[in-house]
């Protein structure tokens, strides 16, 4: 039986409308030629990928990773360092960024996934902090790296096929990747693998007693999530043309959690909406006052106390699960 893509329901509702409007906005934005707006929009797209990857762990897997910025950094640094070494071919550096992030996720996952609950939250945070310090130690020559960060020395080249220096080209490229990630993630969370991950979230003990090696499934989910986030990290590097340890700072990990929750965890478009809202608020309020966190912080508390289901919960038809 055919299911509506992304939503698991065939009837048209508010969610489809939201997605179509968002997609349309993203498609026509480059035509206006406003460099600032386009940059913000591309940033929403790239960070959305990280948010989706985090939601696979958080919303579907019930794993509160407080260190997801580490993959944003790993992707960016791989791209940066390889480009410095003279490897600027996108067909090499992108797979390398993804591969290293997957390996990183595997190593970190082997330790953090042995723990649960509060331990898991704190340990993912601590690991990200460790990589933050490692990034501080990455130096290229005399002038680059360390806490000052690494500028991208030359643009990533896809055998002449894509000109990343054209913001519109880069925008459409990231948009295409986001759509692909959405499709793959949709398949993933509804697959038999996704079913195991969701069951582990609800009742890990039961999954074990039925014969599932829950650690193994969670580890693979962690690696997939890390890979997607690493890809986004590389794109983020191409967007900013700069990566620094700040990318891995734990506040960024916290921001990512906020994007997922505010948008609505346990859905695939929730994180996109959340990222959009977060970035627009950041840009909007920080233009009004430099103390935007003094407004944003209390907003978060209110969201937790009064609006737990996220924005996605508001546009989702009542009575539908997931």
């Amino acid at each position: 039986m055919p299911k509506g893509l992304l939503f698991g329901s065939r009837s048209f509702d508010l969610r489809h409308l939201t997605m179509l409007v968002l997609l349309a906005v993203m498609l026509i934005l480059p035509l206006f030629g406003d460099a600032y707006l386009l940059r913000v929009a591309t940033r929403v797209i790239v960070l959305s990928m990280v948010a989706i990857s985090l939601d696979i762990l958080l919303g579907y897997g019930g794993l509160i990773s407080f260190g997801h910025a580490m993959f944003l950094g790993s992707g960016g640094y791989v791209l940066g360092v390889l480009t410095y070494l003279g490897i600027g071919n996108g067909f090499v550096v992108y797979p390398a960024a993804i591969a290293l992030s997957v390996v990183l996720a595997c190593i970190v996952g082997m330790i953090v996934l042995r723990t649960v609950g509060v331990y898991f939250i704190m340990i993912t945070l601590a690991f990200a902090q460790m990589l933050y310090y490692l990034a501080n130690g990455i130096r290229i020559g005399e002038n680059y790296g360390g806490d000052e960060g690494l500028p991208l020395p030359s643009r990533t080249d896809f055998l002449g096929a894509l000109n990343f220096n054209d913001p519109a080209v880069f925008h459409y490229f990231t948009l295409a990747i986001l759509v692909a990630i959405l499709y793959v993630s949709y398949k993933l969370v509804n697959s038999r693998f996704g079913r195991v991950i969701k069951a582990c979230r609800d009742n890990e003990r039961r999954a074990k007693s039925l014969g599932y090696n829950t650690f193994g499934y969670r580890l693979v989910a962690f690696m997939i999530s890390g890979g997607i986030a690493g890809l986004a990290g590389a794109l983020h590097m191409n967007l900013q043309k700069f990566v620094s340890p700040d990318e891995l700072h734990w506040i960024i990990s916290g921001d990512l959690l906020i994007m997922v929750i505010v948008g609505g965890a346990n859905s695939l478009i929730g994180p996109i909406i959340g990222t959009g809202v977060f970035v627009l608020l950041e840009e909007g309020i920080s233009n009004l006052t430099e103390h935007w966190m003094a407004i944003f912080g209390p907003m978060l508390i209110l969201i937790v106390l009064f609006g737990r289901r996220g924005i996605y919960g508001l546009i989702k038809p009542k009575g539908e699960d997931g």
């Binding site: 509160i64 407080f66 939250i121 916290g254 959690l257 906020i258 929750i261 944003f296 912080g297 209390p298 907003m299 978060l300 508390i301 969201i303 937790v304 106390l305």
Partner: peptide, 8 residues
């Protein structure tokens, strides 16, 4: 996490 992060 969310509320205390906001508070922080």
């Amino acid at each position: 996490v969310l509320a205390t992060f906001g508070l922080l």
